[in-house]
């Protein structure tokens, strides 16, 4: 219930935060919303010597449109993403995903950046971030770099973030006409995390699936793009049968996790079911037949 002692820093600027991170290296942990870090510290699964609270930074909490993309500050909370009128209009997939996280209280505190940097294999965002082909901006005292979402997640609880780097911004595309997306999730009944979470984004052109991206979370040690599903669909005319057949590839080649709540086999099966459901919903939305 009680974290081990630590030294607390609340930098006012990104520069200051980066300096602190450089100084304290491995012994420091960044505190964003605190909904991944604090529970681990309370159970003493984490005991950093230094905690750098990003909550006092100005300017990492925004959702704005820039050149056809929507830029989201890493400190934006799940609730802000869930309720953003800009996201709901231009990239509703992210709002839909945020709404599926935990509960109201968690969404009021937890942040997009915090969740992504923590890279829990059962977190919800990674599926959508992958399906949206988001860009992740990371700052360090050396400068700024951006990577594609597909490169960001390396392994369980491991990302591209190097020592001294802070995830500062996530850019997602504004979804145009003819594009539809959906996030469908099977929740772990106790924790609310995703046993399986699938985000699908499709663009219809002349009745065919012109573009398609499917992100899957919860199934393997890290979230992934279901490329086999995408390949089976690309350029084809969407039909119920085709979507169902393609969805069967959702966990192909992935070593599925097994735990108390789902065996590897069941997880893989559910990956197929929820991929089909997400695809059906995304296609319907793209076609404008359903909300």
């Amino acid at each position: 219930m009680i974290p081990a002692p630590f030294e607390y820093h609340a930098p006012k600027s990104l520069e200051e935060a980066l300096r602190l991170l450089d100084r304290h290296g491995d012994e420091a942990k960044l505190l964003a919303g605190g909904h991944s870090l604090l529970p681990m510290m309370k159970l003493r699964l984490a005991a950093p010597r230094f905690v750098i609270d990003l909550g006092r930074l100005k300017g990492l909490d925004y959702i704005r449109e820039e050149q056809g993309m929507i830029a989201i500050g890493a400190m934006t909370t799940h609730a802000e993403i869930e309720n953003s009128s800009l996201l709901r209009a231009k990239c509703p997939l992210l709002s839909e995903t945020a709404a599926a996280i935990g509960d109201v209280q968690v969404r009021n505190r937890g942040t997009l950046g915090g969740s992504l940097a923590h890279a829990d294999p059962a977190a919800d965002y990674p599926a959508s971030i992958l399906a949206l082909e988001a860009q992740m901006t990371m700052n360090s005292s050396m400068g700024v770099r951006a990577v594609d979402a597909a490169e960001f997640f390396l392994d369980m609880l491991t990302t591209q973030l190097r020592p001294g780097e802070i995830l500062t911004e996530i850019r997602v595309p504004a979804l145009g006409k003819g594009t539809g997306a959906a996030y469908c999730k099977l929740s772990q009944p106790a924790s609310g995390y995703a046993v399986v979470g699938v985000a699908a984004r499709v663009t219809l052109a002349a009745g065919k699936l012109a573009q398609i991206a499917v992100g899957v979370t919860g199934v393997g040690p890290k979230a992934y793009r279901a490329v086999n599903v995408e390949d089976a669909l690309r350029g084809k005319k969407a039909s119920e049968k085709l979507l169902a057949e393609a969805a069967r590839h959702a966990a192909r080649g992935v070593e599925a996790l097994a735990d108390l709540h789902a065996s590897a086999g069941y997880r893989s099966e559910m990956a197929a079911v929820f991929t089909r459901r997400a695809l059906e919903r995304a296609v319907a939305r793209a076609a404008g037949t359903k909300a």
């Binding site: 772990q188 009944p189 106790a190 924790s191 108390l260 709540h261």
Partner: peptide
């Protein structure tokens, strides 16, 4: 529908928190 106290073969309670014991 939800609850089950599960001990593994070593006698560890693997549903020992609300994270895993569903109410």
């Amino acid at each position: 529908m939800f609850e089950e106290a599960v001990y593994d073969e070593h006698g560890q309670l693997i549903t020992g928190e609300l994270m895993d014991y569903a109410l």
